[in-house]
Design a protein around this nucleic acid. Sequence first.
DNA 1: CGCTAATTGCTACCTAGGTCACATTTATAC
DNA 2: GTATAAATGTGACCTAGGTAGCAATTAGCG
Lengths: 234, 234
Amino acid sequence: MNIGLEKYRYYTELMRDNDLFSDISHDALDQLLEISSAQYWPKKTCILDPTHTLYTFYIILSGKVKGYVFDDKHDRPLTLFLLTQNDVFDVFTLINGEVRDIRYETLCDTEVLSIPMYKLHEWIHQNQDVYKALLKYTTDKMRQMENYISNLIMEDTSIRLARLLYNHVNPSSRHVELLSGLTHDELGALIGTTRTMIGRHIQAFKEEGILRTERREIEITNLALLLQKISLNT
Amino acid sequence: MNIGLEKYRYYTELMRDNDLFSDISHDALDQLLEISSAQYWPKKTCILDPTHTLYTFYIILSGKVKGYVFDDKHDRPLTLFLLTQNDVFDVFTLINGEVRDIRYETLCDTEVLSIPMYKLHEWIHQNQDVYKALLKYTTDKMRQMENYISNLIMEDTSIRLARLLYNHVNPSSRHVELLSGLTHDELGALIGTTRTMIGRHIQAFKEEGILRTERREIEITNLALLLQKISLNT
DNA sequence: CGCTAATTGCTACCTAGGTCACATTTATAC
DNA sequence: GTATAAATGTGACCTAGGTAGCAATTAGCG
């Protein structure tokens, strides 16, 4: 990484905070940063080529990335997971060396470290401790995925939307910053439903006094009511 | 393990075939078998206590086990995954040491190796190579789970049932042995729907000449038609 | 065997949520 | 600004799949 010292320190701090690398020695972390390069991805940057993650591994420093598959039958994308600070992708291709048909797209401006796979493999070979950390990481993701599955089957779309909003509201500003600027189509993709449904639910939430919208900004006006909607129906 | 030599050899062979332990030395595998005890679980054996897997780890030698959560709202169980030969559970509690609210139940007679967690932790400490194998194992499970999610959202219940049958049919006998003996309620739990729906679809499949039933035995009479049902609608 | 409980088949009905259509509003480009 | 495209609001309508109820069948057990 040929960057300024200040930036370098910033990356080191971020990596040090990442549970995946907390057991890694200072030297090893330096070596990892050596083979990494920082990238800035503006909102809506896409990785559409599924083979791309065969050759490059990413560590998210800030921002949000969604991983999704495309549903040909209904002609719509379907989000499988959201990745954010300290997440990495794609562990599956890193370990198994196989392509899988998942695409990525940034939901907001995002900073990542990009690492060539073959260099990362070399680094991991010298730092086998990371396997344990990666295992903890993936089992944790797996639990999240199990929750997502039960959520999908057990809850209806309005509760899923309420939960999405609640999980991403900024407690101080009451704005749902992550989701602001997304169209109803995109919100639908995040919870596995259609723009029509999103529109209807948002209208309903407005009437119930839960939220207010203005130019694709969503502001929660009554957080208690929103929370109630999630927890009552379980 | 104080068992006959023959049984012991049988277990060793099974473990040797398990990808999780293929990189483990002969000695280490012996040590693992030392701390294991074999158990035979008849069909419908349940592990209802979620804390149980905090203290015991299982390796499935033969049979099938489903992991599920209970949906209080609809008052029905919902299967998250099926485990079979060479699967282990629960990796999450092994690594994170936390309980999670998942129950287990055997779908047919099942043989497992049971290992006390604290002994397994000691063993793993001496055999850190297993982390890499476990990581491969979990990432693979994760991909299966992703497929399950897209399946749930994209396909309707009849296709999910068709796929369930297709995945478990014995190609030579044409019988769906795993699912034979299960009630419609239990089949419903496996694909996230109700007994009514299962009944309707099975009736429909009969009329289409896809299958035949007799005393809870399901026999596929036209495999091509079944396959067509799965693959046409994607 | 014969009794009881569980399972199934089937009907009628209801609801969530999807599709389609089209007017209205908002963004973006020129 | 205006023209064009994109996004939204809203209506009517349709379908999958859920619920409830009950009769018919089957399994399990003394």
